[in-house]
């Protein structure tokens, strides 16, 4: 039956289109990476050649290591991302459980209120957020970023997690109640482990935008000791614009952690998107 849908020409054309687009997608990344390992001369003479024993050089990376505090930036990004994810998941799951499990007055309204933020970007409130952070003394601390990203991630987290929590069997929870478990124990011991796949999806969805954000680090925490990797590379590249070795190496070092995360989590991410988590 598949004859009609599969003829050799179609197969060939499909691969040709996909391969072309794959090359277009990966080409810039590839060019940046190979040139970061070359001498300045080689970068300009043959930008598309792989580094050879003649043209190999780590001078760019040496400049980056000397001039920029990339380990600190990396550490800041890590702290902000992990802490934000932790709070998004914990608070999001708790609220989702309350909405999915209990019937109380205003349940639907509360659900709608929390869902507002899915469509309205938090950036609109930047002026007042900065005001708030200044008046609470949180400017130029990582806490400012963690709080903002937690608030930003919560709406979608609550929405997705409550969908999943509705599917957890009532019998299981009621059995727990008969055994005298408190509502808290039921949530942490029985329900949370069952929605772990959904939690992973939410985490992966939130991770990349938080890690890559430039807007809030730039506005809320631009101090040297709180720069994230994204902001740090932006500033570094801005200062070293004419030092091509350094710029290319800084770009490669910014690409590396995200690529590692992607390789680890890509199956989760793709499964999350294709399972219709965003409906």
């Amino acid at each position: 039956m598949n004859k009609a849908r599969r003829n050799p020409f179609n197969v060939f054309a499909s691969h040709a289109v996909l391969l072309t687009y794959t090359l277009i997608a990966l080409f810039p990344v590839f060019v940046i990476l190979i040139n970061s390992f070359k001498t300045r001369k080689a970068i300009f003479r043959e930008p598309l050649a792989l580094p050879s024993s003649d043209s190999f050089s780590l001078i760019g990376y040496q400049t980056v290591m000397k001039q920029g505090d990339f380990f600190l930036y990396f550490q800041n990004s890590m702290i902000v991302t992990v802490a934000s994810l932790f709070f998004v998941l914990l608070f999001g799951a708790m609220a989702a459980f309350a909405l999915a499990e209990y019937r109380f007055k205003g349940n639907t309204l509360m659900g709608l209120y929390l869902a507002l933020g899915i469509m309205i970007p938090i950036r609109i409130g930047t002026v007042a957020i900065l005001d708030l952070m200044v008046s609470t003394g949180l400017v130029n601390t990582l806490w400012a970023l963690i709080l903002v990203y937690t608030a930003q991630g919560l709406p979608l987290a609550v929405f997705i997690l409550s969908e999943f929590m509705r599917q957890v069997s009532d019998d299981l929870k009621n059995a727990g109640r008969i055994d005298g478990l408190s509502e808290y124990t039921i949530f942490f011991r029985l329900v949370l482990p069952l929605v772990r796949p959904a939690m992973a999806t939410v985490a992966v969805f939130n991770m990349i935008p938080i890690w890559n954000d430039l807007w809030f680090p730039l506005i809320l925490a631009p101090a040297e000791e709180t720069k994230t990797l994204t902001l740090g590379s932006q500033v570094f590249i801005g200062q070293f614009v004419t030092d091509w070795n350094a710029v290319l190496s800084a770009l490669s070092m910014a690409i590396l952690p995200v690529m590692i995360l992607y390789v680890i989590f890509s199956r989760q991410l793709i499964r999350g998107i294709t399972s219709g988590a965003v409906k």
């Binding site: 309350a98 509360m110 929390l114 938090i122």
Partner: peptide, 22 residues
């Protein structure tokens, strides 16, 4: 209340309130 409070507080304080304040 305990389950809802953290999410609602953070969301209201950092997102909804600044939005209207802006």
């Amino acid at each position: 209340v305990v389950f809802l409070a953290p999410a609602v507080l953070v969301y209201t304080a950092i997102m909804i309130f600044p939005l209207f304040n802006t």
